[in-house]
Nucleic acid binder design. Structure first.
Length: 495
DNA sequence: GAGCCTTTGAAGGTT
DNA sequence: AACCTTCAAAGGCTC
């Protein structure tokens, strides 16, 4: 699997990933055939990101540096690939034109409320920090965290200076559409925005990604494409529009690693940075950094009283189901089972690189494409993921790797198996076993609804069908798989 | 309202 | 070792 460690540096993508990437040759050929259409497309894309790029023109020179070293491919293919990359980058609004991890310098200032105190009042932990200036807030409440984060996450810029400067910056700014966008999340987060089972701070980045205006602020629709353009005031970085009180609304792909409610999300105890898994899952006020009376008795809170996005207890559902208990003929066995489940919080898997990428880019795609259906968005994101350079992907692989490390440290006993059906009690039906070609899983072409990328084909299909049916059952393969494999065999497609 | 769709990657299980 | 399965996020859609 692609990992950054091992000093390989070059081992950023799985082999099949690269194969898939190069298999795009078919599409690239289509691109060249429809070059005129692509130019139109490029115009559209250019118009989409024009505003954001105007603020980053200085990054154009650095873009060449970020490009992966030229590969030993044909110039045509390389050119087409560069074209794709360029398109993707432009679609990405130049997200990667800034320094690595552009989101890192932003510290997650707690959303001072949440679903944990139903009356909307501040949680005790929030109270400790509310109305405290950002820098003071962080240094006074979270300096152990800061040190910890800096130690564990060197890429994280947790220096308060940044915050101060940002504070100054935001203070100097007048309200702008971007601010409005950022401010769409109220300080007191409506329960609608946070599912009861969802930790207070989720990975959701819909509040920070540029170009994610709320529906009522759907500004500037491109008359040509009908695609809304995100409003970006020229004086404001299009990356993460900030405004007073919204700094903390900027979710980071690792947002749960940075302070929430004035505290670290991961437990930091006096005895160390973490507890063993069972302890960490117990709401044990004595282990908290705060007195017991200050620990909100929430089911998904961590030892620190801090909810962890990776922890979701089934309590709410249990409660609802238990409310119907009167009418149900539940056995004692079921009760005990449910009780068991209730005690066992659900620790989510750490996000992989692509998931982190999706978290970051989803809102952008939604804004650009006026799409909301995740299935379609994910297809686009999958394409963009493949269009990313290795360096760009490397950022996410590194993020994911660190996240896994931290997750492992926090929950040593946790296994991905724990989340399998049965372990959590979640009744997730087995995925339908589709016949090849039955649905669009391996469909020949899926027209990109965003119209900003070539038609989507299942890039992983060759391996899927090969793995699934084997070479001797190629009659069961889908069309693209057979085609690609035959090309591979004949040497047309080099892998 | 539960599950599906759709993506990639990680991890665990199976062959 | 290779392959298979499940889950992680997300929100509209289907049954």
């Amino acid at each position: 699997m692609p990992q950054l460690n091992g000093g390989g540096g070059d081992d950023l993508g799985a082999n099949d990933e690269l194969i898939s990437f190069k298999d795009e040759g078919e599409q690239e050929e289509k691109i060249s055939e429809n070059s005129s259409a692509e130019r139109d497309l490029a115009d559209v894309k250019s118009s989409l990101v024009n505003e954001s790029e105007t603020n980053q023109n200085s990054s154009s020179d650095s873009e060449a540096e970020r490009r992966p070293p030229p590969r030993t491919e044909t110039s045509f293919r390389e050119k087409a690939r560069e074209s794709l990359e360029e398109a993707a980058k432009r679609q990405d609004g130049g997200l990667f034109k800034g320094p690595p991890y552009p989101g890192y310098p932003f510290i997650m200032i707690p959303d001072l409320s949440g679903p944990y105190l139903p009356n909307g009042s501040l949680s005790p932990t929030a109270r400790t920090c509310v109305n405290v200036p950002l820098d003071l807030h962080l240094t006074s409440c979270c300096s152990p965290l800061m040190q910890y984060l800096q130690m564990k996450w060197p890429l994280l810029d947790v220096q308060t200076g940044n915050l101060q400067s940002r504070q100054a910056l935001k203070d100097a700014r007048s309200p702008s559409p971007a601010h409005i966008v950022s401010n769409k999340v109220p300080v007191v987060q409506h329960p609608h925005h946070v599912h009861p089972l969802t930790p207070l701070i989720t990975y959701s980045n819909e509040h920070f990604t540029p170009g994610n205006p709320p529906p009522h602020l759907q500004a500037d629709i491109d008359p040509k494409t009908g695609i809304p353009r995100p409003p970006h005031p020229p004086d404001i970085s299009p990356y993460y529009p900030l405004s007073p009180g919204t700094v903390g609304q900027i979710p980071h792909p690792l947002g749960w690693l940075v302070p929430q409610q004035g505290q670290p999300v991961y437990p930091i105890t006096t005895g160390g940075f973490r507890h063993p898994y069972p302890t960490a899952l117990t709401v044990n006020a004595s282990m908290s950094r705060f007195p017991p009376h200050m620990v909100p008795p929430h089911h998904s809170l961590h030892t620190t009283g801090i909810p962890h996005p990776a922890i979701v207890t089934p309590t709410v559902k249990q409660e609802s189901s238990q409310s119907d208990m009167g009418s149900l003929h539940s056995s004692k066995h079921q009760d005990s089972k449910k009780e068991e489940e209730k005690k066992k919080p659900h620790i989510k898997k750490p996000l992989n690189a692509f998931m982190l990428y999706m978290k970051e880019m989803r809102a952008k795609v939604v804004a650009e494409c006026t799409l909301k259906e995740s299935a379609a968005i994910n297809q686009i994101l999958g394409r963009r993921w493949h269009a990313l350079s290795r360096e760009e992907q490397a950022k996410y692989y590194e993020l994911a790797r660190k996240e896994r490390q931290l997750h492992m440290q926090l929950y040593p006993g946790w296994s991905a198996r724990d989340n399998y059906v049965g372990g959590y009690g979640k009744k997730k039906k087995r995925k339908r076993d589709k016949q090849p070609g039955e649905t669009n899983e391996h469909s020949e072409c899926y027209l990109n609804p965003c119209l900003t990328l070539p038609p989507i084909t299942d890039l992983s299909a060759p391996k899927k069908c090969r793995a699934r049916f084997g070479l001797d059952q190629q009659n069961n393969w889908c069309g693209p798989c057979r085609c690609k494999y035959s090309k591979e065999v004949s040497g047309i497609v080099r892998s």
